[in-house]
Design a protein around this nucleic acid. Structure first.
Length: 864
RNA sequence: GCUCGAGUGGUGAAAUUGGUAAACACGCCAGACUUAGGAUCUGGUGCCUAACGGCUUGAGGGUUCGAGUCCCUCCUCGAGCACCA
């Protein structure tokens, strides 16, 4: 095969880049198969949502970084997988559909095409044969299957729960789409609405998700965020007797050491005991207070700046530690959803209880003494117990355990843990999402089916049926089976949710109402069903009309890449045996909690049920690229007019320059402003590279027979540093080093043959197009992608002579050039240094009190 | 309020992890080539000073022969959490 390349005489990046992009496509240069003779390396990007706006300048940042790693690891001999796909369900496509009446699938496909074209124009080393799309039925078939597994294992259930509803958008919104009580899109008010929802029991994995963070290589801040989100705390449940009642109030506390200072109890307005224990005298006040707090939004209730309000119940509890009779209050600063919805209030050592006690004139007792002697209240730290009976003088830490044990012996307390993590609200009242593969049938039909030996749907049934009540009639959830999947979205031209917060699918009666044969599994639209046959084993059912959230598809896409066309399993066992989980995962920090927590949950679940045989954690090494700001240093936005379009940059400077510049901007994980002026620098560098190889007529220059020693040192140092910097993702300094190298080579009259080849090899991951072109022009066949990473020669890097810095009292006074430095003794160095003219100026009339020599680096004379 | 992270030239930044602060690049200044330069090349460019020299990594203190780097106090910016008992 003859070397092929573009025909341009000057550096025409457009011609060169298009030529090589076509070459890669045609030769499937980046397509990989399992190869058990080679070590694998799996590079994963967070796949994009293909928005109508196209690629923005932030996308190529992460993709270039992962691409450099891909090409580098491949050169180092790994079998590298670098796939790409589309997280394509989501609200914008649906809103586009509402506006235009065009099926979101069409809009989505168009957007994907644009994204893909843009990405190909930047020249990423992606195996496009493995492209996945979460909205493809062949993909979401398996998303639905995973849901059914969760259902089967009792991790999916239904509950009536409050969701955000935006009247203006006529849509339910996810928590993350609500900012400060208003919709993220359009800034409209949102309200809470109770709807019947699917919920996943992520809380059952709380401990595992917490422990899993321990030994994975993730940014600390992300680990901390997940830890905080899971919010595990240790303490005790303590039961307080209510004076005059049989009932008790159970409180959760992390500070049992302060129990002697508990001067009142507070229960949440929604607490079940509210109705039972309120004294006649307070009934009206309590009613009003409970009513008012129900009307308050979450935002108002949790506003810290507000003074705490509450109302007395007239009932009293007995403090089990000291037998004191203490008031029971109702206040909305206590949340019914955490712990037991009731607290023991210790105003001496809790800021909130302190504020409340001050407001209502309740006794404040100090029971912890600050060891530093500061005894201002409220003191919330640990200390030494006082006013605490037999526990006086004990430290907080010891007292916590002792007091729980003491109360436990009296059957008043138990050790307990709590989590802030809530179960995952999984259903969305939207059209553009994966349909939840469930049919609701009457409980009586479900029971009858269960007792039938030929019950077709047994495969995915949970131990306890999932049921809910509608208009007094109980319904049970009947899961579809694998052969019913994928359950696709029915076509419609009305994508608007109903005003009462139900999915637009509700309106598609022919899809919703079905008859199910519970013996054969046959499902027929009620419209097409002959009513004469409407008897057992045919039962009337109603399809679940909620869809899944956008997070569902992104929870497992990294597994699908391994065998995207596998029809029998979520992932081909042979493929996952080889590829396992990603070795490197890069994406924005905005997904620190949600996507990354949900995906870890699903991965662990799939591992637990034996669907995959990988490690327990999906992403062992994670990195977040920093946001690229506009030239004015603020976030890019249309309204500010500071948006940089990558297409424009590619047009003016080429893809190689874009890639190089985004990496040269600064450290990968930092937020940094774009500068179009700045890209000129790397653009010039590329031209210099070109001119180092090609003459004015487009012919390859003849290289030198050899390069100078200094030059060879720089070249070796560059090979070493670029490799190390890539491993550490320090691409900015790697590029600097290549610039230094090129500058000194050109000063010294140019490359020799070996260094000309090596330089292209190390440049190739960063600027693959120009590297391919020059590689071919200097006479090589095939892609530079398939060459090895150059070795560097240590012996060529140690200069024969070396500079030693001479300091006097820590200030630099001279430079010594010393040959044969390794064999020189410290005394000889001191001798040399002292006789330096400039050093003499500072020491001749002084007394040297100390001499320091750091081998090969520095001499310091301390004088006085 | 709490928890992290960050503050280095006119700008983006670098610094072998305690050893010459400002590499590399942008910008700017001067020069060369040019009909021309917003192309290219060469040189200069932290601050003060006429110079010798002195000063300099947000501010102040400390440890050290030596601090951008370690410790303490404070200031500013960014991120996350925010009545979770």
């Amino acid at each position: 095969m003859l070397a092929v390349y573009s025909q341009c005489k000057q550096y025409d990046f457009d011609e060169i880049e298009l030529f090589w992009q076509k070459f890669w496509d045609k030769n499937k240069t980046f397509c990989v198969q399992e190869d058990f003779s080679k070590e694998k390396y799996y590079v994963l990007d967070m796949f994009p949502y293909p928005s109508g706006a196209g690629l923005h300048i932030g996308h190529p940042e992460g993709y270039t970084a992962s691409d450099i790693l891909t090409r580098y690891k491949h050169a180092k001999g790994y079998n590298v997988l670098h796939p790409m796909g589309w997280d394509a369900f989501g609200l914008p496509a649906e809103q586009h559909a509402i506006k235009t009446g065009i099926n979101p699938a069409i809009n989505t496909a168009n957007n994907i095409e644009i994204f893909k074209k843009q990405m190909k124009r930047i020249g990423f080393a992606i195996d496009w044969d493995r492209e996945v799309n979460t909205t493809d039925p062949g993909y979401f078939k398996w998303t639905q299957w995973i849901f059914l597994q969760l259902f089967k294992h009792g991790l999916a259930y239904v509950d009536e729960s409050p969701v955000w509803w935006c009247e203006e958008l006529k849509s339910v919104l996810a928590n993350e789409e609500v900012i400060g009580g208003r919709s993220e899109r359009g800034d409209f008010p949102v309200i809470r609405k109770n709807l019947c929802q699917w919920i996943l029991r992520i809380t059952r994995y709380a401990d595992k998700l917490l422990e899993g963070l321990f030994d994975i290589d993730w940014p600390d801040s992300t680990k901390r965020q997940q830890t905080a989100w899971i919010g595990k705390s240790e303490g005790a449940n303590i039961r307080f007797k209510i004076d005059g009642y049989d009932e008790e109030i159970c409180v959760y506390t992390t500070r049992p050491d302060t129990i002697f200072g508990a001067t009142f109890l507070v229960i949440a307005p929604e607490h079940p005991l509210v109705e039972k224990i309120v004294a006649q005298k307070f009934v009206n006040d309590v009613k009003k207070y409970v009513e008012d707090s129900r009307k308050k939004s979450d935002l108002e209730r949790t506003d810290l700046a507000k003074t705490k309000t509450g109302v007395q119940t007239g009932a009293y509890a007995i403090n089990p530690a000291n037998g004191e009779r203490i008031e029971i209050w109702i206040a909305d600063y206590v949340l019914v959803s955490y712990g037991s919805g009731a607290i023991m209030a210790v105003p001496g050592h809790d800021k909130r209880d302190y504020d409340f006690a001050l407001n209502y004139g309740i006794a404040i007792t100090q029971v912890i003494s600050d060891v530093s002697g500061n005894n201002q209240l409220p003191y919330v730290g640990d200390g030494i117990l006082v006013n605490s009976g037999e526990f006086n003088g004990i430290s907080s830490e010891k007292a916590r355990e002792k007091i729980i044990s003491w109360l436990h012996a009296a059957k008043r307390a138990d050790f307990a843990q709590n989590y802030k993590l809530r179960d995952w609200l999984f259903s969305r009242q939207r059209y553009w999402g994966e349909p939840i593969p469930i049919i609701w049938i009457k409980e009586s039909d479900y029971q009858m089916a269960l007792s039938n030996d030929k019950f077709y749907f047994k495969e995915f049934l949970p131990k306890e049926p999932v049921s809910y009540n509608k208009g007094g009639v109980p319904y049970c959830a009947l899961p579809l089976c694998l052969d019913h999947l994928p359950l696709t979205l029915p076509p419609t031209d009305n994508y608007l949710p109903s005003t009462d917060g139900e999915s637009p699918l509700v309106k598609i009666k022919s899809w919703v109402n079905v008859y199910v044969n519970i013996e054969t599994g046959q499902i027929v639209s009620a419209e097409d069903f002959n009513e004469k046959n409407a008897s057992f084993p045919w039962v009337l059912g109603r399809r679940e009309t909620n869809t899944m959230p956008q997070w569902a598809g992104s929870c497992w896409y990294y597994l699908r890449y391994l065998s995207p066309h596998c029809e029998t399993n979520i992932v081909d066992p042979k493929a996952i045996n080889y590829w396992q989980t990603p070795d490197f995962y890069i994406g924005g920090a905005e997904h620190a909690v949600l996507h990354l927590l949900y995906a870890r949950f699903w991965h662990r679940f799939l591992f637990d049920i034996g669907a995959i045989n990988t490690g327990k954690e999906p992403f062992r090494r994670l990195f977040h690229q920093g946001i690229i700001l506009g030239e004015d240093g603020t976030k890019m936005s249309k309204s500010r007019g500071n948006v940089i379009n990558p297409d424009e940059i590619v047009k003016h400077y080429g893809a190689d320059a874009l890639r190089l510049y985004e990496m040269f901007l600064g450290p990968l994980d930092m937020m940094k402003p774009w500068s179009t002026k700045g890209i000129e620098g790397v653009s010039r560098f590329l031209k210099k590279v070109w001119n180092g190889y090609v003459d004015k007529n487009g012919n390859i220059k003849s290289f030198q027979n050899s390069v100078s020693d200094t030059c060879r040192t720089v070249i070796n140092e560059t090979i070493r540093k670029v490799g190390n910097d890539i491993e550490e993702l320090k691409f900015n300094t790697a590029i600097s080093q290549m610039m230094i190298c090129l500058n000194s080579v050109q000063k010294a009259g140019g490359f020799d043959g070996a260094s000309a080849r090596n330089f292209l090899k190390i440049l190739a991951p960063f600027a693959p197009h120009i590297s391919e072109e020059l590689w071919a022009r200097i006479g090589n066949n095939g892609s530079i992608y398939n060459t090895d990473w150059p070795e560097y020669d240590d012996s060529k890097m140690i200069p024969t002579s070396q500079k030693i810095i001479v300091q006097v009292n820590g200030k630099m006074r001279a430079e010594l050039v010393v040959s044969d430095i390794n064999n020189m003794q410290a005394d000889a160095i001191f001798e040399l240094a002292m006789h330096d003219g400039n050093v003499q100026k500072y020491i001749f009339d002084k007394k040297i009190v100390k001499k320091i020599y750091i081998r090969g680096k520095i001499v310091n004379f301390v004088v006085e």
